[in-house]
Computed example of a mutant assay.
Amino acid sequence: MSQSKFLETPKGRRLAYHLSEGAGPCIVFLGGLKSDMMGTKAVFLEEWARAEGRAFLRFDYSGHGESSGSFTEGCIGDWAEDTAAAVAELTQGPIMPVGSSMGGWQALLLARAQPQRIAGLVTIAAAPDFTEDGYWASFTEAQKATLAQTGQVELPSDYMEPYIITQRMIEDGRNNLVLRTPLDLPFPVRFLQGTADTAVSVSTAVRLLEHASGPDMRLNLVKDADHRFSDGVCLDLILAAVNDVLNASR
């Protein structure tokens, strides 16, 4: 596998990335919270894109993977800046974001900010507004007090080591919510969601579908699929969704 390249952003962050040249629209994979660009879904899609001669970009947000910074210093807005910088500097013309978990929220933020660049959109267990509706809404009074006193709180995860959630992440998340105001997605959109996902609920996926507006939007619920959504069947479903959006956007 090729070595990562690095992009210096206007905010002074150093982002690791892999870019495959090819036909557009460029597929931009946006990973989840504390995930990196070496994940199964990102590498699978890159291999497919290379075989098809299609442009593909994957990268690590700051505080993730090979990029600069630490995770606890980051927040949703920082990673949205990273995404915007990567798209601006490394891609040209139409793009098709594929966002997984927190990357789904990032994809929606990107689509809201730059709808003219988006040919279509795919999300996998998208987690919009999770800092408010997931973390803050579920915090006990003791956790809220700890957050106020120490600036952070530790949360267990079913999928990796515990998350350190900071006060800054919560406060910044409130500046980037997408389910409280109109969300127009005027291009083909496919949402994928597993019914056995313990990190993002089916109700969240349905809420996103019902909240967003657009001419061609579908939600595919996959029975017993979990948050990883990365076994062979799920990878095939992701690829089918990507191809469906590409065909619909022509």
Rank of each mutant, 00 (worst) to 15 (best):
Y61P: 04
F44A: 06
Q116T: 14
K41C: 02
V43N: 05
G63K: 05
P94W: 11
A80I: 00
Q106E: 12
G69I: 08
G65H: 01
R54L: 02
A127L: 11
A148T: 03
F139K: 13
Q106G: 02
W79F: 09
T40Y: 00
E81K: 10
T40I: 07
Q149G: 06
M160H: 14
L110F: 10
I124Y: 06
A107G: 15
L45K: 04
S157D: 13
T91R: 10
F139H: 04
A84F: 15
W79S: 05
F44E: 00
L45A: 06
A142I: 11
Y163M: 12
T146Y: 00
G74I: 03
A88G: 03
E52T: 09
A119I: 12
D60T: 12
A127H: 09
A86W: 07
C75T: 00
Q143P: 05
Y135K: 01
Y61K: 07
Q114N: 12
S68V: 07
A126S: 15
Q167W: 04
H64T: 04
Y159G: 13
E161Q: 10
Q116H: 15
T166P: 02
P94Y: 11
E154R: 15
G134W: 11
V122C: 11
L147C: 01
I164A: 11
Q114Y: 14
K41S: 09
S35E: 13
F130C: 08
L110N: 02
I118M: 14
P97N: 08
S62R: 14
P94F: 13
V87I: 15
G77P: 01
E161Y: 14
R54I: 02
G134A: 12
A148Q: 14
L108I: 04
A49Y: 07
D129W: 09
P97L: 13
Q116K: 14
Q114E: 14
A145K: 15
S70H: 11
T131H: 14
F71Q: 01
F71L: 15
M96H: 10
D78E: 06
L57C: 04
D129I: 06
L109A: 05
L33M: 08
A55R: 05
I165D: 03
E141Y: 03
S101F: 04
R58P: 09
G104V: 01
M96A: 10
T72K: 07
G120M: 10
M37S: 13
E141K: 13
I124K: 11
L108Y: 00
V122D: 06
V87A: 09
A85H: 09
E52F: 10
A107H: 07
G69A: 06
G104P: 07
T146F: 00
A148K: 15
G103W: 02
I95C: 05
A125I: 09
K34Y: 01
Y135M: 05
F59D: 03
Q114L: 08
G103P: 09
Q152S: 15
Q116M: 07
R112L: 14
K144G: 00
W79V: 04
M38E: 11
L147G: 03
Y135D: 02
A42N: 10
E89Q: 12
M37I: 13
A42S: 15
W105D: 05
